[in-house]
């Protein structure tokens, strides 16, 4: 299939592994899926400490279930990526470990305290969910199928995140203060979640034409702000004065002063060059190395697992 044919047939779920797709499509889809899969894994690592650190048994259970889900989402997406025939799952996991693999800006920052958790579990996941809902219409069928399962599970994640937010926002004065501080620290990063405006996004046009993306970053950011700014306000969070943001009746949405955001940091992050964030990558790399023996023993031809699978 040539590129023009792909463009003319780029309906939701139109292309599956049985189709002979041009290299541009396969590499574009691989880049997107690998980024998405990496982000699921890195997000899980950010929340993993809260399986222990959460203040109650219910929260520990919920975070343990959530981390389990997110790792599963990563695995689903690596398979959807692998089916494109460009990179193997092992290759993508190795690239994530060695610092080549790219992932979401927010997951390059450390999260150390309980009152920070709704910033990821509600706002960042909520932003991700805006994008993921549109990806159910991806032209790459394995991607759309993965989204069916992921979106099914995310409702729990985000409602749980909001529940933590509500609990802190209606808690003690100290909790409210710490929550506000966490919000001020994370808010600019959350605003950068959808990247810079579309005219600066290098890949968008191609990805939209071949049906891999069905909504622009601007549209998604707008939808996110429309849903989540009122939520923040509902829980008494004060939107910081900077970066400046205001609701514009005429534009029918929020207008963000982009220049108020630190794009130097953002672009360092997108290249995995942001020094404080390297620890996130290295921590996961160390975990991958620590369980290497599990993979090796599963793969070994004389292992019980391999023997069972082989049915000798």
């Amino acid at each position: 299939m040539d590129l023009a044919t792909v463009e003319s047939r780029a309906e939701p779920r139109a292309f599956s592994p049985k189709h002979d797709l041009p290299e541009e499509y396969r590499t574009g889809a691989t880049r997107m899926l690998q980024f998405h899969a990496n982000s699921e894994i890195m997000g899980a690592y950010l929340e993993k400490p809260f399986i222990r650190q959460s203040p109650s048994l219910d929260r520990k259970l919920a975070f343990s279930a959530k981390v389990q889900d997110e790792i599963g989402h990563g695995q689903l997406l690596y398979r959807a990526a692998e089916a494109l025939g460009v990179k193997t799952r092992e290759q993508m996991l190795d690239e994530l470990a060695n610092g080549e693999g790219k992932f979401l800006n927010c997951f390059h920052y450390e999260m150390t305290d309980w009152w920070e958790t709704p910033m990821i579990a509600f706002f960042v996941d909520g932003a991700a969910m805006k994008r993921q809902a549109t990806l159910k219409n991806s032209s790459w069928e394995p991607y759309a199928h993965a989204m069916d399962k992921i979106c099914f599970e995310e409702g729990f994640h985000i409602k749980h995140g909001e529940d933590v937010l509500r609990e802190l926002a209606t808690g003690s004065k100290r909790e409210q203060k710490l929550l506000q501080e966490a919000f001020e620290e994370w808010w600019p990063r959350i605003l950068q979640f959808f990247g810079p405006t579309d005219d600066q996004s290098t890949h968008h046009d191609f990805m939209a034409k071949v049906g891999l993306k069905t909504a622009s970053n601007d549209e998604l950011r707008q939808a996110f702000l429309n849903s989540y700014v009122p939520k923040a306000e509902k829980y008494g969070l004060e939107i910081p004065d900077e970066p400046r943001i205001h609701y514009d009746e005429d534009a029918g949405g929020y207008v963000l002063e982009e220049d108020d955001l630190d794009w130097e940091e953002f672009f360092a992050i997108t290249k995995n060059d942001y020094e404080p964030g390297l620890n996130q990558i290295d921590t996961r790399a160390a975990a991958q190395e620590a369980v290497e023996w599990v993979r090796t023993s599963l793969d070994a031809s004389d292992s019980p697992a391999a023997a069972a699978a082989g049915g000798d």
């Binding site: 259970l61 969910m129 409702g155 729990f156 409602k159 529940d163």
Partner: peptide
Amino acid sequence: KAYRWATTYNVDASFAEEIEASEREQ
């Protein structure tokens, strides 16, 4: 395992269509 269902958490999902859809499926 009530803790892993969206329906357990008493917060309003109607603010975002995609969260509502997920809750409905669950």
